[in-house]
Design a protein around this nucleic acid. Structure first.
Lengths: 105, 105
DNA sequence: ATTATAATATCATTAGGCGATATCACAACG
DNA sequence: CGTTGTGATATCGCCTAATGATATTATAAT
């Protein structure tokens, strides 16, 4: 159970966590969510996807809640929600820094 | 002159480009800018920094404008400005997706 | 039983981040 | 002049992340 809170999420990581806000999901649900939510802008191949699910589970951001045959369903933990909100905060700072600099030219 | 426009910048890349919006800079200027602008939130080691400067120059986002001794000064090209604005756009989409999902719970 | 389908897992390659360390150009000192 | 200091840049090695291709597995359909 790694406790190190990651200082920064990649875009893929962010959208994966986002997928779990509303409901528990399995891998393919997540892939579908990401494609739909971003209008195809971001595509996640299986390599990225399942690697992330495994890592998030190890780190305690996701918890496995159900196994039906091969299908594994995960749930976003409190720690996962916290990580998501922290990433939102980081994005806000990043964007506002970026806009300020741009607008002050 | 690599023409592949990167689909996504890392946070480090973004702040490096941001540094050049106002004026030409050398590496240590950039490092100082980033530390100051982010209030120390983001620290860039020399490895990351000079690797990025070299790559951006190769890709035509930066152009070398001056060499004084060992000090090299760079200028943000039009292509670099475009990359910066595209990244701003990406961040906006990312953040608004993230906020919408969070607020619609 | 065989075939199809949905879902997950693994592999190999490539890019990025980083601290530690080395190198280099110039200046100041004695 | 050499030596020493300093500011700046460059390189190395290790680690993490992304990803397409491919393989594997469980269940359902024929």
């Amino acid at each position: 159970m790694g406790d190190k809170l990651r200082g920064q999420l990649t875009e893929s990581m962010f959208y994966v966590l986002m997928a779990f806000l509303r409901r528990d999901m399995c891998g393919t649900d997540v892939a579908e969510f990401v494609e739909r939510r971003t209008g195809g802008r971001l595509h996640m191949g299986p390599g990225t996807l399942y690697t992330l699910l495994a890592k998030f589970q190890e780190e305690g951001l996701l918890r496995e809640t159900q196994v039906e045959g091969r299908k594994r369903t995960y749930h976003l933990t409190e720690k996962g929600r916290r990580a998501y909100r922290e990433e939102l905060e980081r994005l806000r700072r990043c964007l506002s820094d970026g806009e300020e600099e741009w607008n002050s030219l």
